[in-house]
Design a protein around this nucleic acid. Structure first.
Length: 427
RNA sequence: GCGGCUGUAGCUCAGGGGUUAGAGCGCCAGGUUGUGGCCCUGGAGGCCGUGGGUUCGAGACCCUCCAGCCGCCCCA
């Protein structure tokens, strides 16, 4: 199982809960600063939502969903992507009434029934945003910039932003016809997959990785040359804004995304350090989606970023995240039953004072307790034995000070630690 | 869903038909009658991924399934 653990049994360094928290908190902070607020939706939704939103013809819906029938006979599905549930929640809770533009973010697990591989898991986490209610290309630029800023703060700077416009219901049919016309005479030289796509979803012929397909599609007409006036202007403005913001991008007329709902802007961020599963994020505009889900015509745009792939990229690139310090400030080592009673009272007091503290359980030898304190990277060891109890004091050893030791009255231990640890805690 | 490689101790891996399956690291204990890291000594820990088969004998060979990895497909 792909468990996330508090420690590393080595080899799989990115499966650390501390690393995940670091990535998540960076994402939350970026979102907050860009004016996005968190939304949480259920892990499962009615199957129909995804069929309608993502599209019956897509691979995700046709063969990659975890779908089952509940006790009431309804067909339910573990969400295979993050956008559709957000749109459903947006409509169901009438978020549009709160403000015409809703800027939302989520950190959520999604499920796809696929063959596992490094960087591709049946359950994976996506961090994402959705900006619903604006058709301003400036919001496209904002969403893309937010993603790139997130990578920058993680330290993943070796990325490539691929950008395309997939048009709208006005211009896409025109392009689809042109593409078919171009491909028809070349069909015999292409893979079976592409021959099937020719019928079902011609645009997807463009991003086949098969050598023969790539060669055949090389001279294909470009979607961007078939854009209607509105889409063309939108795309031009977006590029203008991105240039002004110094966000580097590569136009890629073969970029087609795997959801039917995308319109106009489509983008993908790849990290070359990653290998086969090298897309660390992707998204686009979905101006028809809200209406498709039963709402008023409402434009929207968003992205999803794979948390695992970001973590793998960080590992691959040798980038260390600043991790939360999980080590205790104080460790209490007790010797003897009488001392233990005083010790657990002291432990309680330290914790109430919000000083992270640990205790040497199971009556082990002082040496064993010291070793444990050292391994936990505790700063102070508070030693309590018969002598100390008799004197009403404790021996406190400071590991950060060469093991210097002093005697402190039991009643003053908490204050003493607090005073000493405060600058440490702030640092 | 397709093709290939790999599953032996907590981790990294050795053993390639023949007694009681090994190493390093980690863990535990002792060396210090109450003092961490370094060092030394000892110890615990394995139905050799699962189920079947071949064989006098299988951790080794064959098949099934499962899992991981590398591609394809797809996508984050």
């Amino acid at each position: 199982m792909n468990d996330l653990l508090p420690v590393s049994p080595s080899g799989e360094g990115w499966r650390h809960t501390a690393r995940w928290r670091a990535v998540e908190s960076i994402f939350r902070r970026v979102c907050l600063q860009y004016g996005y607020r968190e939304i949480r939706t259920p892990v499962m939704e009615s199957t129909e939502l995804f069929q309608r939103a993502v599209g019956e013809g897509t691979d995700i819906v046709s063969k990659e969903m975890f779908t089952f029938t509940d006790r009431g006979g309804r067909s339910m599905t573990l969400r295979p992507e993050g956008t559709a549930p957000v749109i459903r929640a947006y409509l169901e809770n009438k978020l549009y009434a709160d403000s015409p533009l809703q800027k939302l973010y989520y950190i959520t697990h999604v499920y796809r029934y696929e063959r596992g591989q490094k960087g591709r898991y049946r359950e994976h986490q996506q961090t994402g945003v959705e900006a619903i209610g604006s058709q301003d290309p400036a919001i496209d630029a904002e969403v893309i910039t937010l993603a790139m800023e997130f990578y920058r703060r993680l330290g993943i700077t070796q990325t490539e932003l691929l950008l395309n416009s997939v048009g709208c219901p006005v211009c896409r049919p025109r392009y689809r016809d042109a593409l078919r016309e171009y491909a028809r005479p070349l069909l015999h030289s292409m893979s079976r997959d592409n021959q099937r796509r020719f019928e079902v979803n011609p645009l997807r012929m463009l991003d086949s990785k098969e050598e023969a397909d790539r060669a055949a599609m090389k001279g294909a007409p470009k979607l961007t040359e078939y854009l209607c006036e509105e889409c063309h202007t939108h795309f031009a403005r977006l590029q203008e804004y991105l240039c002004a913001l110094e966000v580097r991008f590569t136009l890629n007329s073969h970029l087609v995304r795997g959801f039917d709902y995308y319109t106009k802007t489509a983008f993908e961020i790849i990290c070359p350090a990653l290998g086969a599963q090298n897309a660390i994020g992707g998204g686009g505009r979905y101006d028809g989606l809200v209406e498709e889900c039963g709402g008023e015509p409402t434009p929207g745009i968003g992205f999803g970023i794979g948390t695992e792939r970001c973590l793998i990229a960080l590992e691959q690139l040798g980038i260390a995240l600043p991790l939360e310090d999980e080590s205790p400030i104080a460790f209490i080592a007790a010797l003897g039953e009488e001392a233990k009673l005083h010790a657990i009272k002291l432990l309680h007091a330290l914790r109430r004072a919000e000083i992270p503290s640990e205790f040497g359980y199971d009556n082990r030898s002082l040496k064993a307790q010291m070793r444990l304190a050292n391994r936990l990277n505790a700063r102070f060891v508070i030693m309590l034995g018969e002598d100390e109890v008799r004197q009403g004091s404790a021996q406190i050893k400071d590991f950060h000070n060469g093991g210097a030791q002093e005697s402190v009255r039991l009643s003053e231990v908490t204050d003493w630690i607090f005073r000493k640890a405060e600058p440490h805690a702030k640092a």
